[in-house]
Design a protein around this nucleic acid. Structure first.
Lengths: 246, 246
DNA sequence: CGGACTATTGAGACTCCTCAACTAACGTGG
DNA sequence: CCACGTTAGTTGAGGAGTCTCAATAGTCCG
């Protein structure tokens, strides 16, 4: 299986247009993310949107560029990152199907966004989206839910970055990927579409530390790597314990 | 001046009700945050809201509690934090006037929130707010802007946490505080309403490291502490350089 | 003025970072 | 088809920085 296939490009349930994944803030049965848009809303957005298919490692936009579009991720994985003055990069977040990106500040994009795998995007002009939202306040509410969902994700990332131990950070990252990429069919196998360097930039570690942390997790019998772009959780108890041990 | 006075309780421009501070995402003259609500909206919200005045070090709510209210910070400073399994705390964000808090997930508050100074809050039932938002889509748009503003703030916090050097983190934190608490009248003097322990939990450092970093910044002639709850920037050039040196 | 809490300072242990060499994987062109 | 070059990833040794533990100093409040 090629890396790019990890984000399937045309799953049946996505063919009708963009969707938004978020955990609701009201009381509900579980805390699992759910799809927010109904068929009508997705069709409306699809009518406004341009479908864009991009190969891996393609820049979607750069930080500070004029922001004219909002993107809905349909399939594949991307990363949003910032270039720091020192030349280092920090990955602010990975983007998965059902995510929305294109945040601006004063008219300029906040981050650079680059594809990790082959991706399918729905691109909508910011003005068109504003018009759509004006006519459908419920859609705006969905976007608000999504923004708050991202806020919560960002806080979890901050907690991850607060950890001092590399293996712990890596384990938390794996747990995050499992939540976002779980396909149910490969139980305990977590796809790692991104490179070690991407992981390092997300974890706030050096590439070497990620490598060493990976080796450590494997040596401890907690996980087993399956060819560089997948990990299998061997000892779920120890894994969960490590994730929560902060 | 007592610590609690750092967040003035009844400034003239806040008397008419809650307000929301956020940086717009559209192109604008500057990237400074601005007040989003007009007088009518503030009056409407004020009609729905209960004004709550709380003394310092008071818990507003605890994480995992049932979330029934949204709060608009009118005056004073608070902190939103999580208790980690190890017993440690991580401050996710400080809350300043013009901020909104009370995010839930599945009906439960995500963080605990505690006052740092004496504060004035506008408390609105989540259902009442939803009704108000239904009748005024423009208000909902303001909330969306605010959520996105918080998203950007969270990313800056994540970048701060990615730094390895304590003095650099502390300087970035001071810069953040200056943006959020600037009163213009005391140029270069930054108020520090929170304790060193609060700072440490926000910076992801130990209390001792914050103390040492403070001493280091002062020794280098970059800042000068004025009685524990205020810092003055002495060498603005070096200060900015340190803030940006990541 | 005392007592409790908060903050500072010092010494040693631990973890990650940097630099460097080495190995593996991939894609290209001969 | 293979050889090669480039990129990505692993592993080792030394140095920088923070963390923890402990003792001291300072601050706030009754």
């Amino acid at each position: 299986m090629a890396v790019h296939d990890l984000g399937v490009i045309e799953p049946v349930h996505l063919e009708t247009g963009p969707s938004i994944r978020a955990t609701p803030f009201e009381r509900s049965l579980d805390k699992a993310p759910r799809r927010l848009l109904n068929a009508t809303q997705r069709r409306q957005l699809a009518d406004l949107a341009t479908v864009v298919i991009l190969p891996p490692r393609t820049i979607v936009y750069r930080e500070d560029a004029d922001g004219a579009w909002i993107f809905f991720a349909g399939a594949g994985v991307l990363k949003a990152f910032r270039e720091l003055p020192s030349g280092k990069r920090r990955v602010a977040t990975f983007v998965f199907p059902g995510d929305v990106f294109g945040i601006t500040e004063g008219g300029h994009y906040l981050n650079s966004v680059q594809t990790v795998t082959k991706v399918k995007l729905y691109r909508i002009g910011i003005e068109a989206l504003r018009d759509a939202v004006r006519e459908d306040p419920h859609l705006q509410f969905q976007l608000l839910c999504k923004a708050i969902h991202e806020l919560r994700q960002g806080q979890r990332h901050a907690i991850l970055l607060g950890r001092r131990d590399a293996p712990g950070r890596l384990a938390m990252c794996f747990a995050m990927l499992e939540r976002n990429l779980s396909t149910d069919d490969h139980a305990d196998v977590i796809a790692l579409p991104m490179s070690r360097t991407d992981l390092a930039e997300y974890l706030g570690l050096s590439l070497e530390s990620v490598s060493r942390a990976s080796a450590a997790l494997e040596r401890r019998g907690i996980v087993k790597f399956q060819g560089g772009h997948a990990v299998k959780v061997i000892d779920r108890v120890q894994f969960d314990k490590l994730v929560r041990s902060l």
